[in-house]
């Protein structure tokens, strides 16, 4: 795995798309890995009883996936400084979460990426990720 260097990144560059199939296994195992035991993230019956279509991703997982999306592209030496996300529609089990991203600015080694995470119902999460990249050389 190689890390992008600052000079390789310019505003307007597109990140490769990442599409995650939200199987019940993904939703449940991520909820547990983030220590979130709220029933709507692992118990279909309870989720439906509360008016949801099915179990759905918890916010901690959404944040984790956004982080992963950016570091998959930037590489292991990138340092994430912040993630600001506006939350939209739920990401239900059985759906597919597709991330797209665009570099909006770079100042020295500091890069801001706009990330959009969409599911079949619309925007699940959208916002910006700030990171630093090592200099060229």
């Amino acid at each position: 795995m190689r890390t992008l260097t600052a000079d390789e990144v310019e505003a307007g560059a597109e990140l490769p798309e990442l599409s995650v199939e939200l199987t019940p296994t993904v939703v449940v195992s991520a909820a547990l890995a983030t220590m979130d035991l709220t029933p709507v993230h692992h118990d279909t019956e309870r989720a439906r009883a509360q008016g949801s279509k099915d179990i759905f991703l918890n916010i901690l997982t959404t944040m984790g996936l956004v982080q992963r999306y950016v570091t998959d592209w930037a590489g292991p030496e990138a340092v994430i400084k912040g993630i600001d996300v506006r939350l939209g529609v739920p990401a239900y089990a059985g759906d597919r979460l597709t991330f797209t991203g665009t570099v909006v600015s770079r100042e020295g080694g500091r890069v801001t990426v706009e990330v959009r995470g969409k599911v079949s119902l619309g925007s699940h999460a959208g916002g910006t990720v700030t990171l630093t990249l090592p200099p060229a050389g």
């Binding site: 984790g64 982080q67 992963r68 292991p76």
Partner: peptide, 24 residues
């Protein structure tokens, strides 16, 4: 990392936690 499908080796190599895990 397994649950997120994140294969970034940096965290375990350096003894650091992924930042988005803060709340976890």
């Amino acid at each position: 990392l397994a649950a997120m499908g994140d294969t970034n080796p940096a965290y375990l190599d350096k003894g650091l936690a992924p930042p988005a895990m803060a709340q976890v």
